[in-house]
Amino acid sequence: MQGLELWSLDELCDHAFDIFEELAADNLSAEDYTQYQQQYEQRGYVDLVLPGAEWVELIMQDLEPELHYEAQIGLTGLDGNPDKVLARILLSREKHDGLCHAQWRGQ
């Protein structure tokens, strides 16, 4: 990883939200998108997790745990715990790596 320009984890969260915001209207149901638009300020979240094996199978590429993360974006429940995952976005921490795959709720 020496010599690579990496996103910090906070920057990666912001990057994931930017991607989500750009693509959500075209990829979520009208109901999910409307609910997100109405409630994201109070209940929106992003969690970064290590990508599971299903991503390797889907993109047919090995992933490095230090470089690749799955951003889960959604709405929390009333208790503050994640309630509804609207998108799972696979990203690289490397700023110049264009890796980005998304799986959307309901697709």
Rank of each mutant, 00 (worst) to 15 (best):
L4A: 12
Y45F: 08
I89H: 04
D97L: 05
F20R: 02
V46T: 14
Q37T: 07
L4T: 11
E21S: 09
E21N: 12
L6R: 12
L23I: 07
A30P: 04
L75F: 11
L67S: 07
K95N: 03
W7K: 14
A25K: 14
F20A: 08
D62E: 12
T34D: 15
Q39R: 10
E22C: 07
L9S: 14
L4M: 08
I89D: 00
G106A: 06
D14G: 11
L23N: 11
Y36F: 14
V49T: 10
H101D: 12
R93V: 05
F20M: 05
G77E: 02
G74L: 09
E22T: 10
L99R: 02
A102H: 02
K95V: 06
M1E: 13
A53P: 12
G77K: 04
S8T: 15
Q103C: 11
V56Y: 03
W55F: 04
A87R: 02
V49L: 07
Q61N: 12
V46S: 08
T34M: 12
L63A: 03
L4Q: 14
W7N: 11
A25C: 14
D83V: 11
S92R: 06
E64W: 10
V85W: 09
P51I: 02
H101R: 08
Q72D: 08
A87Y: 00
V56T: 07
P65H: 09
D83L: 03
D97N: 15
F20Q: 04
E54I: 13
A16I: 14
L4E: 09
A71P: 07
G106C: 03
L78C: 12
I19G: 00
D18E: 15
W104I: 04
A24W: 08
